[in-house]
Amino acid sequence: MKDDFERIVYEYSDNLFRLCMHYTKNTADAEDTVQQTFLKLLERSEPFENPEHEKAWLIRVCINLCKDHLKSSWSKKVVSENFLPPPSHREEIPDGTAPAILDCVRRLPDNQRTAVYLFYYMDMPVSRIAQAMNAKQNTVLSWLRRARKTLAKTIKEEF
């Protein structure tokens, strides 16, 4: 089991962290959520059926914890942006570099941004995304379609 923990943490922590960053917008909160996701493993008594099942389960727990975090009383009150250094202290994006697409994705509704992440970054098939997000395949396809439309508009307008 020790090796199992190591394998699971090393295999999934980066991807779960990236998923959390779509919700929490700061690294400390994202790390906390990733940690809580792994701790949920301890509450699970049954083994996973296969690696896909394990992955889908972790993603689902992680999304739920991210949503819980957003609902919590203090996260609503904290102006995350203001925890960051003021613009003069931040690193500037050098000219010619691609704009922050991630920021555009973050502005999408919860379901759409998660679907975009799982589809475009994790390369998961729609059937697996549906399983991880507890939704029908057609619903996932519809989220992706809407997200593509919104993103195309935002990217065109802003950049």
Binding site: V9, D14, V34, V116, Y121
Partner: peptide, 18 residues
């Protein structure tokens, strides 16, 4: 999008502490 996300990752010390 993939390039931006690739730059985000947790540290080894975080993994070890988890």
């Amino acid at each position: 999008y993939q390039k931006e996300l690739d730059s985000l990752h947790v540290s080894d010390s975080f993994k070890k502490s988890v």
